[in-house]
């Protein structure tokens, strides 16, 4: 399998504190991979370095063959990487579909267009993406009125608009009802299967992780302690040690962000 993402000895230190300490891993094409770990393990920091929100202290990130270390988020996005956030940052003063249209406008490089009416552009295409995530009926609602779970789904639709090669999802199901979580991850799994996109996600809900991830990585105190399929990770003694204290690895129902 070809690698879509390769991370080499990634380090982030804040005044000597190593939030991420020499993490290396890769994500293969068409792979759905989870990055898990207890709170404060460095998952989000790690994510922010992949997408360029944070500049790593050292180490490298490759997208395919290209080095993207420290590249600005918008450039990483243009290279075909989509991202959803733990806390969604959708545009509060736009409707649901306009949020998607916004991403499409950017994708089609129409941002400096002063002539067209924005709400008319790519509406059909945007509607398709909303349909994929099951938000079509709410297309014309103001974003500010959405339930939290719906915002997450909208976020996913937005991340899909430029047909990314790689999707980074930070806690995609956080704050959702348990049934909705499973549904959303099934959706993600379908997208991976249908569109051949690779997904790297962090997640607290172990049911979600173990049900859908092809491979799982475990991060603890900034270091990667396991990387393998579900069974291998379950058996890994270090992982057991980390998670037994928290007790959340196998009794996942109560674990959410």
């Amino acid at each position: 399998m070809t690698e879509i993402l390769r991370v080499e000895r990634l380090v982030k230190s804040y005044d000597g504190f190593l939030a991420v300490n020499g993490v290396s891993f890769s994500v293969a094409e068409g792979e759905l991979k989870a990055l898990i770990g207890p709170n404060g393990a460095g998952k989000t920091t790690c994510f922010n370095m992949l997408m360029g929100q944070i500049r790593p202290t050292s180490g490298d990130v490759f997208l395919g063959a290209e080095r993207i270390t420290g590249m600005r988020p918008r450039r990483v996005w243009r290279k075909g990487v989509g991202r959803t956030f733990q806390i969604t940052g959708t545009y509060q003063t736009m409707t649901v579909i306009e949020n998607v249209q916004m991403a499409l406008l950017s994708h089609h490089r129409r941002l400096f267009d002063l002539r067209s009416r924005a709400w008319k552009l790519f509406r059909g295409e945007a509607f398709e993406f909303l349909r994929i995530v099951g938000m079509a009926e709410q297309a014309d609602r103001p974003c500010s009125e959405l339930a939290y779970g719906d915002l997450k789904r909208l976020d996913l639709a937005i991340a899909l608009t430029h047909r990314p090669r790689l999707l980074l999802m930070d806690e995609p199901t956080a704050g959702m009802a348990p049934s909705a979580r499973v549904e959303l991850m099934r959706l993600v799994a379908e997208i991976v299967a249908e569109q051949g996109v690779s997904v790297l996600f962090t997640e607290h809900d172990m049911d979600v992780v173990f049900a859908h991830a092809h491979h799982i990585m475990v991060l603890n105190r900034g270091e990667l302690i396991a990387d393998g399929d579900a069974a291998a990770v379950r058996r890994n003694p270090k992982v057991q040690e980390v998670y037994l204290g928290g007790g959340t690895l196998f009794a996942a129902e109560d674990a959410n962000a």
Partner: peptide, 25 residues
């Protein structure tokens, strides 16, 4: 201009700079 894509992009940057940045704006 406010109703054009440019105006929308401007508003996107105001509503959520992080999100805008993460979608290539």
């Amino acid at each position: 201009a406010i109703h054009a894509p440019f105006g929308y992009a401007l508003r996107a940057g105001r509503d959520s700079p992080r999100q805008a940045e993460a979608m290539g704006i």
